[in-house]
Design a protein around this nucleic acid. Structure first.
Lengths: 107, 107
DNA sequence: TGAACATTTGAAGAAACGTTCAACTATTGG
DNA sequence: CCAATAGTTGAACGTTTCTTCAAATGTTCA
């Protein structure tokens, strides 16, 4: 007869700011372009131009998304001469993507 | 000296439809309201009205988001008299949320 | 049957998003 | 120093998203 009240459920939820961060994180994976970029960087560190070639997208579009991913601390860019090499900046990225793919492939 | 070409990277990426499904999945977790709903349902199966109370949101808003989650096959609703009880419809949900939370909490 | 209740639905409006284009900054090599 | 190359940035745009409100549906019970 273990009853759980609404108030108790409310208390068990993560704080609002945690929920917001969580949603922000998942939002990063919630766009096909960003998902592809992350997948690419999982394979190999790449320059912006290379990503643009591989994904067949404009440099500008790729750059805009890289900025978003950078601000979420999921990737980082390192200047090398006039080019910028991007790499994953987070260990969880791979794990999270993997779980997602497992789910998607198990239908 | 193992070189990886752009073409090879392209070939290593998941198919576009997989990437799209993946993004669709993560999009579900990418909204605070939906994240909260999923968190609640992780604790206990709940009626729409209960969710609306717990989250302090209009019934309509909750119902709209439940429809989205339902169409993504992450929750399911079962009619019980005039109420509808919602529950998680997917084993991965908990794992994915957990990984996300781990990430968010490890800053 | 009809009033009350629980939920769904559709339209509307505001805000957020993603791409494009053009302009800009930064770096290198001639 | 100038031109060429790599990348970033901001504004504009069309699209999608989320909430609200009002109306509709479905269910129970008096």
């Amino acid at each position: 007869m273990s009853e759980i009240t609404k108030q108790e459920i409310r208390n068990m939820l993560p704080d609002d700011d945690v929920i917001y961060s969580l949603a922000e994180l998942f939002k990063m994976f919630g766009d096909p372009t960003r998902a592809k970029i992350l997948k690419c960087l999982q394979i190999k560190d790449l320059y912006v131009g290379e990503l643009s070639d591989i994904l067949n997208m404009s440099i500008s579009a790729v750059s805009h998304q890289l900025r978003v991913l950078r601000s979420a601390k999921l990737v980082k860019g390192t200047k090398e001469g006039k080019e910028v090499k991007y790499s994953l900046d987070d260990d969880h990225v791979t794990k999270i993507l993997e779980y997602g793919l497992t789910h998607v492939n198990e239908e």
